[in-house]
């Protein structure tokens, strides 16, 4: 029961690590996800191909395998980064594939006539997408993006296996110190709940705010 209070700083570091991983990876995933969604609906065939390959490779690779590929693979090409950055890369790229598909399904909810009207007025593809289609798609992609980012927060536990300080990894030193494994994990679970419920709350607010338009 005292495992939390006795080791507050250890838990704190772990929670901070998970939050950092989640925030940075989310930003990367959102940026890449929107970009790839734009690629997948672009009028240029080569961009569509890049988007399709990106999604299919990353969505269909087990995340742990992707971590191995990044952590062991990239150094072979001379790219040596801190483990934490590798973890952000792996998590962000992996999740971007799911964000991309959520955004794309949102784009599909916008009637084609909206895009046609914009094009008929002489608007370019980026203008049509940015000013007309995405703002209308945004509302319907908020809930699935929320779920995807919650999954990301939980997936960040894998980074612990690759020497990155994060919440789940806290159990190792604690169990060595002889604390009850059950209470150790209860407090870890509470930590994850803090992160995921915060994400839920943020997306709830976003949905309230943007869902009202029209």
């Amino acid at each position: 029961m005292n495992v939390l209070l006795d080791n507050l700083s250890l838990y704190g570091e772990g929670l901070l690590g998970t939050v950092e991983l989640t925030v940075y990876s989310s930003l990367l995933a959102l940026a890449l996800g929107f970009l790839m969604a734009a690629f997948r609906v672009a009028p240029v065939g080569s961009l569509r191909a890049i988007g399709t390959v990106w999604v299919n490779v990353l969505r269909n690779t087990p995340l742990t395998l992707l971590f191995f590929a990044v952590v062991l693979g990239l150094p072979r090409f001379g790219l040596v980064l801190p483990f934490k950055l590798f973890a952000v890369l792996a998590l962000g790229c992996y999740t971007s594939a799911f964000i991309c598909e959520a955004v794309r399904s949102g784009i599909n909810t916008v009637p084609t006539g909206q895009g046609e009207a914009a094009r008929s007025l002489g608007m370019s593809f980026p203008q049509t997408l940015g000013d007309i289609v995405l703002p209308q798609a945004f509302r319907s992609v908020i809930p699935p993006i929320g779920s995807t980012l919650i999954a990301l927060a939980k997936n960040s536990a894998i980074a612990g296996a690759f020497s990155v300080v994060e919440l789940l990894g806290v159990y190792k030193p604690l169990s060595e110190m002889g604390y009850s494994i059950i209470w150790t994990f209860v407090w870890i679970a509470v930590g994850y709940l803090l992160v995921t419920l915060t994400i839920s709350a943020i997306f709830h607010v976003l949905e309230k705010h943007y869902g009202a338009a029209r």
């Binding site: 009028p43 909206q114 009207a117 914009a118 209308q136």
Partner: peptide, 25 residues
Amino acid sequence: EEGRALAQLRAEVGMVFQSFNLFAH
């Protein structure tokens, strides 16, 4: 063909659709 020149040309020809297609947002 598709691209900037086409957009320019479309700007010079207005189109009115059966389903109006006003920007809903």
